[in-house]
Structure formats: C-alpha cells, structure tokens
C-alpha cells in the first residue's frame, strides 16, 4: 500500500472515479496554484473497486470546490485543519459552470464565435440539467439533447 503523508491544512477528495483525478486537478485550477498536491490513481476501494484520491495542502479558503458537484456528485470532500478532519462537505450543484464543458450543438453561436466563454447554467435542480447560456441546449455527458 502506498503511503502519502498527512496534511496539516487543505482537502482530501476521496471516492473520485478511477482515472478522473487529473481532470479534477485541472478543473480546480490546481495547475495554477503553488501548493502540494498528491494524486493517487487506482487506489483499492471496497465500495468502488478502484478509486482516485486527491490530497491538496492549501489554505482552506483558497480553493473553490463548487465545480466538484457538477463533475461528480459522489466525491467525498474532507476539510482538514491542524491535521484533523473538521468537516465532510457536501456541495450543492453549482448555478453556473464556466469553461468546463463545451456546447456541442452545431447550431450554437459558441461553435463559431471566437473567444466566447463556454457557460452553462443550472436549468433544473432536481434533474441536474445544465443548459448552454447561448442556445439553451441541454448538456449531458453523451452529447447535447433537447
């Protein structure tokens, strides 16, 4: 078993779908932050078989985690302070997702207009449906619908 040292302050993001940790690393902007990050891929998990874990050593106020609920609502977020878990966070779906997904509706203006930010808004909280801010096409991981 691989051992990664304890962190004093920061986050442990557990139960990430195996292979998805690098994607999260970029979504959270960790590539732009000067902090210690441990990426653990394909760790053994009783519940999931395999999982990824991200350990981030940082001030707990510096990281915006809102996007996690959109990327994978099953991720466990442990908030660490003074080496102890002080909170297990569950996040609501973000109202807006910017720069994470692209609109695949071929008729959408965002497919031809330069430098237009890709923005999706939460259209239906219960069904977790996001729609493109420009054309209102619904996003799902397999492509645009309705």
């Amino acid at each position: 078993m691989l051992n990664v040292g304890k962190i004093e302050e920061g986050f442990v993001l557990d139960h990430i779908k195996a292979g998805k940790s690098l994607e999260l690393y970029h979504h959270l902007g960790l590539d732009k932050l000067d902090c210690t990050v441990a990426i653990i891929k394909n760790a053994r998990s009783n519940a999931m078989g395999k999982k990824d874990i991200l350990k981030v050593e940082c001030n707990i106020n510096t990281l915006n985690l809102d996007v996690l609920a959109f990327v994978d609502p099953d991720i466990t977020i442990n908030v660490i302070k003074n080496g102890e878990i002080i909170e297990k966070k569950s996040l609501p779906l973000p109202k807006e997702v910017k720069g994470i997904i692209r609109c695949t509706n071929p008729r959408c203006i965002s497919t031809i207009e330069q430098e237009l930010p890709q923005i999706f808004y939460l259209a239906d909280d219960h069904r977790a449906i996001y729609r493109c801010r420009y054309c209102d096409a619904a996003y799902n991981p397999n492509g645009i619908t309705g």
């Binding site: 509706n105 008729r107 959408c108 203006i109 965002s110 497919t111 031809i112 207009e113 237009l116 493109c132 801010r133 420009y134 054309c135 209102d136 096409a137």
Partner: peptide
C-alpha cells in the same frame, strides 16, 4: 436575426 442559436445573446 442570425442563423446561429444564441447570436442575439452574444
């Protein structure tokens, strides 16, 4: 009027 959806929003 524009053929692309969302053009007026832009």
């Amino acid at each position: 009027r524009h053929p692309k959806e969302g053009a007026a929003t832009v």
